[in-house]
Amino acid sequence: MPIPFRFAAALACAALLLPLGCGRASKTAITLAGSTSVEPFAELLAEHYMAQHPGIKISVQGGGSSAGVRAVTSRICAIGMSSRELNPEEKALVEIPIAHDAIALIVNARNPVRRLTMAQARDVFTGRVRNWQELGGPNRRITAITREEGSGTRASFDERVMVAGMPKDKDGKTNPAAFAPDVLVQNSNGSVREIVASDPAAIGYISSGLIDERVAAVAIGGVTPTEATIRSGRYPVVRDFLFLSCGEPTGTAKAFIEYVLSDSGQKALAEEGLTRVK
């Protein structure tokens, strides 16, 4: 059984390399861990980088943004990945934004409604607005789709859209409005897009890089997500994909981050639908 054995051997090597890759010992192998939203992009960049620099080994793991923060704080990995903003107590880490990811409100390509105010966008998901007629569209019931509880995309949507116009509580915090119970829930960007693509009455939100010709982005407060509006910060629903480091990065980690922020690294990210930071 040569193949499983080789696979097992590779795993064992990876396990051996793991502690070496972290912190100071090795200069040639590093590990990235964290957000599952950033993970596919980091994997792609790592592949490009390893192709150009034979002998260097970069492994990328998921686990979620919080796991990434913990891993880099305890120096289990060289670079953490996060798709959410850091909490005040996590701010000791060095944050390196590698790309902007806009979250676009999408409707079916046949839907004539292409502009919503922030309050209207919120009301569609809280259930206050239930018919497209109220938004200047045809007389059809709205089918709103959200992501599952715990998803980073949903958290960003909560923080930027669902809080609109909500009163502050006694701690000065604005809590997001609750989604209506009959809002559909899907657990990936892809399936939200598929539903919107097939249902003329649907509305959902996905990473703007995943928009295709069957769905259309809605302007929020008159601003559509384009490279210019996302980079200037005029488009309101944008999150940054972050690399995190405990102290200034050194060695391979530093070289890799430099590559990610270089023109070719940024170009690779832009081709995948993200927006360049540099």
Partner: peptide, 23 residues
């Protein structure tokens, strides 16, 4: 997978298994 109490056959619904797998 909506979190509503399904009172009509045409309403969306979330089952116990999907709740686990979704989240």
């Amino acid at each position: 997978n909506a979190l509503t109490m399904p009172t009509s056959l045409l309403q969306p619904v979330r089952t116990l298994t999907s709740n686990i797998a979704l989240e």
